[in-house]
Design a protein around this nucleic acid. Structure first.
Lengths: 135, 135
DNA sequence: TTCACTGCAAATGCTTTGCAGCGCC
DNA sequence: GGCGCTGCAAAGCATTTGCAGTGAA
């Protein structure tokens, strides 16, 4: 029988701290960045624990995950209402958020046509922003 | 004045071997994979050199680069004629190639509207394939 | 002959893991 | 009080780099 695995999850101050930190962030952060951030706020969470908690939250679908241009895993509080993609400047790192309902439905349709389920997708556009292109 | 930087590039057997190997591949490969492949064909190129040559080819625009799901850099011989995306099974790794002209033009339009140039994009769809979903 | 290219091994930097102690339930 | 969670340090990987020998031009 298929059961949703009920995973026990103790409420520790580390987990709360990380959860709270994510609430205060609009955008994706890497594990390293989040860890640095917590340290600056004098919240003591080890790097290993930060990795573990973020991975576990991603597993439970509490955060969205994707890879940044450097190949690092980056996380963001999951909020179905604000799914969007990014236009990134290769040079200065500037990002523009993009709403793309057309792409969402396209991805869903492609997946359906191929019988795929539990679908996620990543879409990133890289280029040179006007300022960097002007130099 | 903008000049294309003329970079000297000696023709070594390592560079030829890697170039030839890429010609024989349709899809993206990671540096590690390419290196393994060359070894299986008894072509002796060190891993470090494989990294160096691929990075240099990417620099010169001879190959396309992006990141795979694991965050590794992957390369493919540059060929504007066969650009496509992938639908990947999270469980068994099966991939389905997808032609998506609509997405191409969408990405180009978004970039143009924001003044971005020299645009690249990555689109990957992850899910469970029919076989893996059935289990 | 010259100097870029290579191979090798050591060094990096991100991420994961083993283990003993801690603390939530 | 039990057992999942932490911190720490060590281990793992992919990738990069220093250096001296090799070979393309």
């Amino acid at each position: 029988m298929s059961e949703v695995p009920v995973r026990e999850q103790r409420v520790t101050k580390q987990r709360l701290a990380i959860s709270a930190a994510l609430d205060g962030l609009e955008d994706f952060v890497s594990t390293q960045e989040l860890h640095r951030l917590l340290h600056e706020q004098d919240v003591r969470v080890s790097l290993a624990t930060t990795y573990r908690i973020l991975a576990s939250m991603a597993d439970d679908g509490l955060v969205d995950t994707l890879r940044n241009g450097e190949g690092e895993a980056v996380y963001r509080r999951c909020s179905a209402t604000s799914h969007h993609h990014h236009l990134l400047c290769r040079n200065c790192g500037k990002t523009v958020e993009i709403e793309a309902p057309a792409v969402e439905s396209w991805a869903a349709r492609i997946a359906r046509e191929n019988g795929f389920t539990q679908v996620q997708h990543t879409v990133e556009i890289y280029g040179l922003c006007p300022e960097c292109a002007a130099v």
